[in-house]
Design a protein around this nucleic acid. Structure first.
Lengths: 203, 203
DNA sequence: CTTGCAATATACTAACCAGTCAACTAAGTT
DNA sequence: AACTTAGTTGACTGGTTAGTATATTGCAAG
């Protein structure tokens, strides 16, 4: 015994997987426990509620994604190149999940945020916090793109929100249509929002 | 007695209201029945399942919205004017719901679609169908705008999807932030997607 | 080698869930 | 007035829910 870290991590992974592929409301603590191979007692020893686990699990999931984002949005890369890479990566992640789960699952953070924001304040706050972190990457990238004259806009944060809303809306729509094909126009749409100029930069 | 129509309509209204303000998974058939003042037996006389009610209720909700959309998207109005009116109306509806419910509730169709698309196929299909109906209004409007030279684009349907994804993503984000303020830039963002030209058309 | 405690295990509860059912009511028909 | 039947009623069922209580395990320090 004496392996709490392991237990928590298993619960994190299982919770994100099950909630992402199904929904928070449709999976039970028992489902999570049995799938993770953890007993209920250990669950409630590690977390005080189902909602608590969800908040921690999504924070953990974001932290695992962070190194990838740090690399994509590295200042070493020209800003529009970062945007391209980010778009490609989002689509790639979606397609991988599609193959594993057999259906389009959308953005896990947005899905749980959309489901629970009106009902569970800690979950809403976490979902909000995580989307703001994503938007920060976009905003600083777009600030540079604007400074370089590659993109025309006044407020980089506002533009970042537009891009972010478009991307999350597209992922949601792909989920609702259960059609990965429509993800293909993600990059094109993003560059349309950024203005006509960088369209030529599309590989 | 002998008033099934009334019973169904009460269940439609209550179901949409409760699901919109909370979520499908968190409200029970008993909740819907007691709020609607309908007995459980009558519920199951009228609908064969909770999921069945949801599909019918959202179809009904869309049909009640349809005359408003038909007017907004009337061919009598110049295409970019239609887009402006539509944006204003979306924001107005959101603000009204915000005042009634005390929180930002987002798009009801997208919310239930996002929650259940991976789990309940009839609900996914209905959500898909309803978003395609909305996109048709946008696509035919944008086709005219392109023909007039007011907007530069090749495929009106593709552009309509971009606009629709942006709008639904913004409504979702407003829900996750529980902040109606961010709805204010909806129109600006839509016109940015449509290209710089019609920006001057903003009132 | 024993004592203390972090962590695991499992049985349990009380509330709630979607859905069923047989009795009942009233309007329409003859 | 007797019959038919669409629609209503609310008690009921069997299963599930989140969360708890209590017992047990095994490591580590003294």
């Amino acid at each position: 015994m004496r392996r709490e870290g392991d237990t928590k991590q298993k619960l994190f992974n299982t919770a994100v997987e099950l909630i992402w592929e199904n929904s928070y409301g449709s999976i039970s603590v028992d489902d999570i426990c049995s799938r993770a191979g953890v007993n209920k007692g250990s669950f409630y020893y590690a977390f005080k509620s189902k909602s608590d686990l969800a908040v921690a699990a999504f924070e953990n999931h974001w932290n695992k994604k962070r190194p990838v984002l740090d690399e994509i949005f590295s200042s070493q890369v020209p800003p529009l190149e970062r945007m391209k890479k980010y778009c490609d990566r989002v689509v790639q992640d979606q397609l991988e999940k599609y193959q594993k789960a057999g259906k389009v699952c959308g953005c896990p953070f947005c899905s749980i945020g959309s489901e629970l924001s009106t009902q569970d304040e800690p979950i809403r706050k976490k979902a909000h916090e995580l989307s703001e972190r994503s938007m920060k990457y976009l905003a600083s990238t777009l600030r540079e793109a604007i400074a370089e004259g590659a993109v025309e806009a006044k407020d980089p944060m506002e533009l970042a929100r537009e891009v972010f809303c478009y991307i999350s809306g597209l992922l949601m729509q792909a989920k609702i249509e259960n059609n990965p094909e429509i993800l293909k126009c993600l990059k094109k749409g993003v560059f349309r929002i950024l203005g006509a100029k960088p369209l030529a930069a599309l590989s």
